[in-house]
């Protein structure tokens, strides 16, 4: 099911996220890859699960294969597709393939740079940027490829995009967001946000676009992890008081505290956005608690 259908119904849309395994899916169909097991844990609590595309430019199982596996297991995937590893032929071909294999939602992104990953000498492609990718995808929905040739059996998927409310200058980020909407983006998932004021300021500037926004949550596992993100993950900032808060409890109580921090944040911002995108980084078991804290009814 397309996420846009849920947004239209006024549902508060909850999505999770899994990263495909570094390896192939077993030929023995009774053996699930770990990403599918994580997705199954999320299944009862979220509307859909994002499947990342060589996230952080680390080579893994293809996002499409993992997405199809989720779909087979009855979980709605949000297939992520980036411009880093594919030129315009491959991007269009993969979009048509994804639709042909039953994918209803695709998140269209630029992708992390090769230098951040495990194949630093690879050739970065970036034939298109994310705005051009969305525009091209819209063409496939209308029956044309990027060269203007007619295609048969148009694809019909919901197109998602990303935006970073932490960006400075924010107006420049919003300029690009507007271009994505004009190009055909139908909903947004944001980069991880931890500061309510930052998110409110962002929403004030973009509510005029009338495009659904899911606030992004990366759960905090430890003070070390938070500091690592502040140092190494660009465009994300964990405030010092939250780092202290997660560090204030013993290790065995971290999951509970983490769920509380994330849940509290979602509770504060849920009235100004249309959904939440939770990136649990393996701690899928605390997602129900986050939603409980936030006062969001399970699916």
């Amino acid at each position: 099911m397309k996420l846009t259908t849920l947004f239209e119904k006024g549902e508060f849309v909850v999505t999770g996220e899994v990263g495909p395994i570094k390896g192939a899916i077993h030929r023995d169909k009774s053996i699930e890859p770990s990403c599918a097991i994580e997705a199954l844990q999320l299944h009862q609590h979220v509307h859909a699960v994002n499947v990342t595309d060589n996230q952080s430019a680390v080579m893994r199982l293809g996002s499409l294969a993992a997405s199809v596996r989720l779909k087979t297991n009855g979980i709605e995937p949000v297939y992520q597709l980036t411009c880093r590893d594919r030129n315009r032929l491959a991007l269009q071909s993969d979009l048509l393939t994804a639709y042909s294999l039953g994918i209803d939602n695709v998140l269209l992104l630029t992708g992390d740079h090769i230098q951040l990953g495990d194949h630093k000498e690879a050739k970065p492609v970036f034939d298109l940027d994310s705005v051009q990718l969305i525009d091209m995808a819209k063409g496939l929905k209308r029956g044309y490829d990027i060269s203007g040739s007619r295609i048969e059996n148009y694809l019909d998927m919901a197109f998602g995009a990303v935006v970073n409310p932490n960006s400075d200058p924010l107006d420049l980020q919003i300029m690009k967001m507007k271009k994505k909407i004009d190009a055909g983006a139908q909903f947004f998932q944001t980069q991880a946000v931890y500061d309510v004021t930052v998110f409110e300021k962002f929403i004030k500037k973009v509510e005029k676009f009338n495009c659904p926004i899911q606030v992004g949550i990366v759960i905090l596992k430890s003070p070390q992890m938070a500091r690592f993100m502040n140092k190494n993950v660009s465009g994300v900032h964990v405030p010092e008081d939250l780092i202290e808060e997660i560090g204030s409890v013993a290790k065995e109580d971290r999951k509970k505290k983490s769920a509380e921090i994330a849940g509290r944040f979602v509770k504060e911002v849920k009235s100004i956005c249309q959904g939440v995108h939770i990136m649990p980084l393996g701690w899928t078991d605390i997602v129900p608690d986050i939603l409980e804290y936030a006062g969001i009814k399970h699916k």
């Binding site: 880093r84 630029t110 992390d112 740079h113 230098q115 951040l116 970065p124 970036f126 940027d129 994310s130 705005v131 051009q132 990303v162 935006v163 970073n164 932490n166 960006s167 400075d168 200058p169 420049l172 980020q173 300029m175 690009k176 271009k179 980069q191 660009s234 465009g235």
Partner: peptide
């Protein structure tokens, strides 16, 4: 721009610097 983006920046700049090379300013900024 390290990613050769034509329609604006990625979301990765930090204090005005590129996420790929923190020594360099973000081209889009």
């Amino acid at each position: 721009c390290a990613k050769q983006l034509l329609n604006g920046p990625c979301g990765g700049a930090e204090d005005g610097h590129c996420e790929v090379d923190p020594e360099r300013p973000c081209g889009w900024i």
